[in-house]
């Protein structure tokens, strides 16, 4: 079972995890949430842009790679786009498997890879109305490459 979605609206994490738990021995998940600050300044919102069409293909490919590498019974990736305020969900990555090691590793792999190989871009919007595009972090690149 695989579910990939790119959407402005929120997701119901409980419902998504419940759907994965059928026929599984365990479910692992990661939820990315908008932080309340960036660089020591209060954040008003994050704006998320993506490349429609390519994004979905990139996420499908990541899920395929995870399914080939670990024994998964399910894989769910939901990424939100648009304007998101602090505390709101950005992304859900969840996988299920018979035994915990597969789901835990696959979930970590998917979020590490998503950060460097899916075409999303974040802009930070501050309370004073200024905004800037988030720069890619070398630590994200290092984390993604560690799985190769």
């Amino acid at each position: 079972m695989r579910k990939i979605a790119v959407q402005p609206g929120d997701f119901d994490a409980n419902a998504e995890l419940a759907a994965l738990s059928a026929n599984a021995g365990g479910v692992a998940s990661f939820i990315g949430v908008v932080r309340g600050d960036a660089g020591g300044r209060a954040l008003a919102a994050l704006r998320l842009e993506h490349y429609p069409g390519m994004t979905e293909k990139a996420l499908e490919r990541l899920a395929e790679a995870a399914e080939a590498r670990w024994a998964l019974s399910g894989c769910t990736i939901i990424h939100r786009i648009g304007r998101l305020t602090p505390g709101q969900n950005i992304v859900l990555v969840a996988t299920s498997s018979r035994h915990r090691a597969d789901a835990l590793a696959a979930t970590a792999y998917l979020i590490d890879q998503l950060k460097t190989s899916a075409p999303f871009w974040k802009a930070e919007e501050f309370a004073d109305g200024t905004a800037h595009w988030v720069e890619a972090r070398e630590s994200d690149e290092t984390a993604a490459k560690a799985w190769l």
Binding site: G32, L48, Y51, M54, I90, L114, K115, A118, E135, A136
Partner: peptide, 10 residues
Amino acid sequence: IAFFPPVTGG
């Protein structure tokens, strides 16, 4: 063809 900065999702 698309041009863009390094990606920053997740």
